[in-house]
């Protein structure tokens, strides 16, 4: 098996894979725009604010994960990249949530929790 054939094989393989990715990216970006549009509309819809809040959180989470999963190639990369990123993401999320809870105040300005 000579080297040139091998190389062309690998390039073909690359091409096919990248071609496949194009459609994935296109679908993802359409989904992202749809979600953004829904987000923009839903805040004006007269339903319970809790539901709006919840769906906003869920939708932006989906958008967030879609971008890192497909656009940022985590789907195709080694699991290690995901783990490294998740270490930061989890600690950052935990910190934000903890801070939000710590700043639940009573009227005098002292923390309640």
């Amino acid at each position: 098996m000579d080297a040139s054939q091998n190389t062309s094989n690998s390039v073909d393989h690359h091409l096919a894979e990248e071609h496949q990715k194009y459609f994935t990216f296109f679908n993802v970006s359409i989904a992202l725009i749809m979600l953004t549009a829904i987000e923009l509309v839903i805040v004006y819809v007269p339903i319970h604010p809790g539901i709006v809040m919840g769906s906003l959180v869920v939708m932006s989470l989906i958008k967030f994960l879609a971008v890192i999963w497909w656009f940022m190639h985590l789907r195709w990369d080694m699991i290690l990249c995901t783990l490294v990123f998740l270490s930061g993401l989890i600690i950052a999320t935990g910190t934000v949530i903890a801070l939000m809870l710590l700043f639940s105040e009573d009227p005098s300005g002292a923390p309640m929790i």
Binding site: I91, G94, T95, A98, L101, L102, A110, P111, M112, I113
Partner: peptide
Amino acid sequence: GFAVWSHHMFTTGLGIVA
């Protein structure tokens, strides 16, 4: 180490739960 920072702040009037 990322989940214990407020033990430097026990006297700042944190609530009972925290």
